[in-house]
């Protein structure tokens, strides 16, 4: 009797969930970004230095005209990232001018940037950035790979724990950069708007930012939108999570230690408890 009620209840609940899922998939929704292969996914995944360096090049030559990258130059030579040499970073920083001061006379002055300075941004404030971009402020790029996602839905989000899938942000940005298409005939796209297959609502202020051959790679990698977007997304994944490599390496050691420790504790526990005589009371020492 009770099992029958339980079975009925669980069937009803399952039906409710399925109805919800089915409903989500009907109607004209934004397609889910396809999952890409990333060198940094999974428990042992690390960044590809060459890819990060190419990604930085794409950021510098294309994205940086509108999007901010609020990290200091020195990050570019730190371990676990692009790992340029310190000399390279120093030379790179010197190409930029930053405002400093006030000096002893009370005046602000310009000087070449140093590795400790943040990468300068073209606009003084968000309002200025918005005004120069059809009223839509280009989002800051440092944390973009973590700040963007798409709905995984039940039960995928639960399965993600076991598959360690957590690249919703990178997959979404990659899909977006490759999602510029001709709009459907019945959709009106206003001036200053562009159609994008993966943008929620399909209307995005940013015009197609990448085109084949736009950035010249020196390492022989293909100079295609596909490759550019893959590289910039890898770079953004690093800027959003610069401790990824250190995190996974330390985590591996911590888990090995805890695993061994658990084994030892279990052994001691089993031994202690097996010595209990269940017929007799146990005196504390």
């Amino acid at each position: 009797m009770t099992t029958r009620i339980a079975a009925l209840a669980s069937a009803a609940i399952l039906a409710l969930f399925l109805a919800g899922v089915a409903n989500a998939e009907s109607g004209h929704e934004t397609p889910k970004p396809p999952a890409q292969k990333w060198s940094f996914s999974g428990p042992f995944g690390m960044f590809d230095r060459a890819q990060l360096q190419r990604g930085f090049q794409v950021y510098r030559e294309v994205c940086s005209s509108c999007h901010s990258m609020n990290i200091p130059f020195r990050n570019l030579s730190e371990p676990g990232g692009t790992e340029f040499t310190e000399a390279q970073v120093k030379a790179l920083a010197a190409e930029y001018k930053v405002q400093d001061g006030p000096n002893d006379d009370g005046n602000m002055f310009e000087r070449p940037a140093q590795p400790s300075d943040k990468i300068p941004y073209n606009f003084a404030n968000p309002q200025q950035a918005a005004a120069a971009n059809n009223g839509a402020m280009p989002p800051p790029m440092r944390l973009l790979a973590k700040a963007r996602t798409y709905e995984r839905g039940f039960p995928l989000w639960l399965i993600d724990v076991f598959t360690q899938y957590q690249e919703q942000g990178p997959d979404y940005i990659y899909a977006l950069l490759n999602g510029y298409e001709e709009p459907p005939k019945d959709m009106v796209i206003d001036a200053g708007q562009n159609y994008n297959k993966y943008m929620p609502g399909h209307k995005i202020a940013m015009a197609k930012p990448l085109n084949d051959g736009q950035v010249t790679y020196t390492d022989g990698s293909p100079q295609t939108v596909e490759q550019y977007s893959r590289d910039i997304v890898a770079f953004l994944s690093w800027t959003a999570d610069p401790s990824l490599e250190e995190r996974k390496k330390l985590g591996f050691r911590v888990l090995i230690f805890l695993g061994v420790f658990l084994g030892l504790l279990l052994y001691v526990k089993k031994k202690l408890w097996s010595e209990i005589d269940y017929e007799k009371p146990i005196k504390a020492h």
Partner: peptide
Amino acid sequence: FAMFIFYMPDF
């Protein structure tokens, strides 16, 4: 706990 801290910190 460590699995989330080190491998899925944003889950």
